[in-house]
Design a protein around this nucleic acid. Structure first.
Length: 480
RNA sequence: GGCGACGUAGCCAAGUGGUUAAGGCAGGGGUCUGCAAAACCCCCACCGUCGGUUCGAGUCCGACCGUCGCCUCCA
């Protein structure tokens, strides 16, 4: 069975066939860097990180481009997020943008999201945008008006094909602020004339100004990925107008189809509502990391399908933490035994178990990146492995290594849940030696059946976050 | 008003029309253990409501109720 992807343009799952065999070119709309990244960014970029990782796992050579939007875009108040942020923090706009770009990558790194191959910045591509806009004017799809340039949506018959909107049904501007210089309300800005107080400004054939929001993605994606390219991703909230406009700009001027597969992920909700500062439920990733391990957040996100909305609550996160712990404990148990296990071949029944686990995992991932099902397969695999370890037969070095390598691939390489091994594997050092010293002392007490003293040590270590586990082979410990 | 998504156990969440509706958390009962913990075994849903199509529907169609997103340069 091979990979199928839900294509928003076709509104159905389609077999995945890249434009160029063996290679995949994908683009995902990146953040506007005027503030700290929040949980919603976390979900989105985890969702696309999985697509990136799984395509690589399947053997494709992938080029992943994700832009950094560092040009301010106008709010309906006429203000600009980046200029507002710069004023707030007493920084030059480019200083603000640089600060939050770095913080964005820092947060993404903690979630073990692989960095895109190219992170182009809008401000670094102004000449290319000017060129593209000029082409649109030349081909009759855009017009200049009062120092700004607008795309003429009437000139592109297929406008609306992604979002399912038709121009006739567009509301005649009840809420859309209509710039009087536009020919029709749905026309969108490619270039905006800069008012005198606007700091971020560039020269153009139409005077000083700054680019419209949609043009950067079209220009940068085509520049680095060619035309057409395979996958364009982003949050559903960007389907309209952003992605619709990208298609119009790209296809009107080139006559080519722009993107083969449009992929949209669902929103993150907090107790049933979209995250909003005004609702008081806005949580930055930095804040979330104080409460939950980044891998717990990642795991939680992966336990739902990328296309659906995900409702986040403390209870749900805590539940995810326990589940992840269980998966990790299997791997831990396996790794702990590798050194001391006898050499010898892997028993056939284990091989069968691993093989069917891998097949179930891949079948789920092939079905439009169904990570919840893939994780279910991992839990079943984990249960099988634990049972195999419990029964004690055929636990050879080779067998344990086979388990380790499969889990490392599926849980680590594909799902990204094992950043650098297991973080509770404390480095050798004084702390570790002290813990082991205490365990030795406690074992001696247990041999003397001084259980009260032995239990006291166990309880106090537990309070410090060190969980002891007694077994016939001795006592092991983990950091809770 | 227009476009679209979704409503599955206490919580989270999968589910190509067809034998017993995944998986995780929580909960209950066991095995193991000096006791715990971990692990393993067992138990725990008739799928928002009402109709319809079908031999057969959580899965298709319609209506209704509810939630959410977009139509405002939010991931």
């Amino acid at each position: 069975m091979s990979l199928e992807i839900y294509n928003s343009l076709a509104r159905q799952k389609e077999p995945f066939e890249p434009v160029e065999p063996g290679r995949v070119h994908m683009y995902v709309c990146g953040p506007t860097v005027y503030n700290d990244a929040h949980l919603g960014h976390g979900k989105t970029y985890i969702n696309f990180d999985i697509i990136f990782r799984y395509l690589r796992y399947l053997g494709f050579k992938v080029r992943y481009v994700q832009n950094i939007t560092d040009v301010g875009h106008i709010l309906d108040t006429g203000e600009d997020r980046i200029l507002l942020g710069a004023a707030r923090e007493q920084m030059h706009p480019m200083e603000l943008v640089e600060t939050y770009t770095r913080r964005y990558f820092r947060d993404m790194d903690r979630l073990n999201i692989l960095r895109p191959d190219i992170s182009p910045r809008a401000t670094g591509h102004i000449p290319e945008m000017l060129e593209w806009i000029a082409n649109l004017i030349k081909t009759g799809h855009a017009y200049e008006a009062n120092g700004s340039v607008y795309f003429d949506v009437g000139s592109y018959a297929e406008y609306g094909k992604l979002s399912g909107r038709r121009l006739e049904q567009a509301q005649s501007g009840t809420r859309v602020q209509i710039a009087e210089e536009k020919r029709r309300p749905e026309d969108f800005a490619l270039w905006k004339k800069a008012e005198p107080e606007h700091i971020m400004r560039w020269n153009s054939p139409w005077g000083e100004g700054f680019p419209g929001w949609h043009i950067e993605c079209t220009v940068m994606s085509v520049k680095y990925l060619g035309l057409p390219f395979d996958i364009h991703g982003g949050g559903v909230e960007n389907k309209f107008p952003h992605h619709e406009c990208e298609i119009a700009q790209a296809e009107a001027v080139t006559g080519n189809s722009f993107v083969k597969y449009w992929v949209h992920n669902g929103m993150l909700m907090i107790r049933g509502e979209e995250m909003h500062k005004s609702l008081g439920n806005f949580i930055t990733l930095e804040e979330a990391f104080e409460r939950w391990d980044p891998m717990v957040i990642r795991f939680f996100v992966l336990q739902s399908h990328y296309r659906g909305p995900l409702d986040m609550s403390e209870e749900a996160l805590d539940g995810a933490a326990r589940g992840l712990q269980r998966l990790r404990s299997t791997l831990r148990a396996v790794r702990r035994r590798i050194q001391s296990a006898p050499p010898g071949e892997s028993p056939a029944e284990l091989t069968t178990l691993l093989e069917s686990g891998r097949e179930a995992f891949e079948a789920s991932m092939n079905d439009d990146f169904n990570t919840p099902n893939a994780i279910a397969a991992l839990f079943e695999l984990s249960r099988g492995i634990n049972a195999w370890l419990d029964q004690g037969q055929g636990i050879t070095q080779e067998a344990l290594e086979a388990v380790d390598s499969l889990l490392e691939r599926l849980m680590g390489e594909v799902l990204g849940l094992l950043p650098e091994g297991l973080e509770d594997e404390m480095e050798p050092g004084l702390g570790r030696e002290l813990i082991e010293l205490l365990i030795q002392a406690r074992s001696a007490l247990r041999e003397q059946r001084a259980f009260e003293a032995a239990d006291a040590i166990r309880d106090q270590l537990a309070e410090l976050g060190v969980q002891l586990q007694d077994s016939p082979e001795g006592t092991t410990w983990t950091m809770a």
